[in-house]
């Protein structure tokens, strides 16, 4: 992975976070990344502590009931990273705009009336010439690389995600390169026996087996999130 790229991290909250991949990026000393992720937690903190980050774009930085993400909060408050406030809509719409090749995605409802157009210089205002109504323009989100952790994949790149789908399908479509890290990489007929795939081989550029690759977050059905480890992490800050 090149420094200064835009990296999408899959999963959300405490489910299917590509933690092992992030640790590998730290070892590879990749720097100045822009991370786009639906919610930022353990996986993003790994990159933050590894000195890899410039920008984090996310709707939420925290560890659910285990507390806020104190590392991301402190880094943002101190200006070590730029934390860009996204919403569920700006991320979903941004990925969709990238897929469709649109210059922006319009919103007539989401974010209207909020301070987001002031928080986000990249969110614009337009007047629809037909109706005279004001709408907001949301920027496309076009990651260079998407990394998604899956409970199973096959050697061709078909992958089962199961739950905590977040915006992973859209990110695979919108990103230049998609990497799947999988608890287990199976033969194609073994994967098919488990059920239909969520990501298809033509969407996935690289597959790598990474057992325990989401820990301490969950990867159902293999393991739930590790509550004690998360408390330890939260208390260590």
């Amino acid at each position: 992975m090149a420094s200064e790229s835009t990296l999408f991290l899959g999963g959300m909250l405490l489910a299917r976070r590509p933690v092992a991949f992030c640790r590998a990026l730290v070892l590879a000393a990749v720097q100045k990344l822009t991370v786009v992720t639906f919610t930022a937690g353990v996986e993003t903190e790994v990159l933050l502590d590894g000195g890899c980050l410039d920008v984090v774009r996310t709707t939420y930085a925290g560890l659910e009931i285990y507390g806020p993400s104190l590392g991301i909060r402190a880094a943002a408050e101190d200006g070590v990273i730029e934390l860009v406030d996204e919403t569920e809509f700006t991320i979903a719409a941004g990925l969709q705009a990238a897929v469709l090749g649109l210059p922006w995605f319009p919103s007539t409802r989401a974010l209207v009336g909020t301070d987001y157009p002031d928080l986000r210089p990249d969110i614009g205002r337009l007047v629809d010439p037909a109706s005279g109504r004001e709408l907001l323009t949301l920027p496309p989100i076009r990651p260079d690389v998407a990394v998604i952790h899956a409970p199973w994949a096959d050697s061709h790149g078909n992958a089962i995600l199961r739950t905590g789908l977040a915006v992973d399908h859209a990110a695979a479509c919108a990103s230049a390169v998609t990497i799947v890290t999988a608890e287990r990489v199976l033969a194609p007929d073994e994967l098919r026996a488990l059920g239909e795939a969520d990501l298809l081989a033509f969407q996935v550029d690289h597959v790598v087996e990474a057992p325990d690759g989401a820990r301490p977050t969950s990867c159902l059905p293999h393991y739930e999130h590790d509550r004690v480890a998360l408390i330890d992490l939260a208390e260590a800050r």
Binding site: T39, T59, Y60, T87, E88, R109, L111, Y116
Partner: peptide, 8 residues
């Protein structure tokens, strides 16, 4: 932590 989907 962030407003998630509330602004939408």
């Amino acid at each position: 932590p962030g407003a998630v989907g509330i602004p939408d």
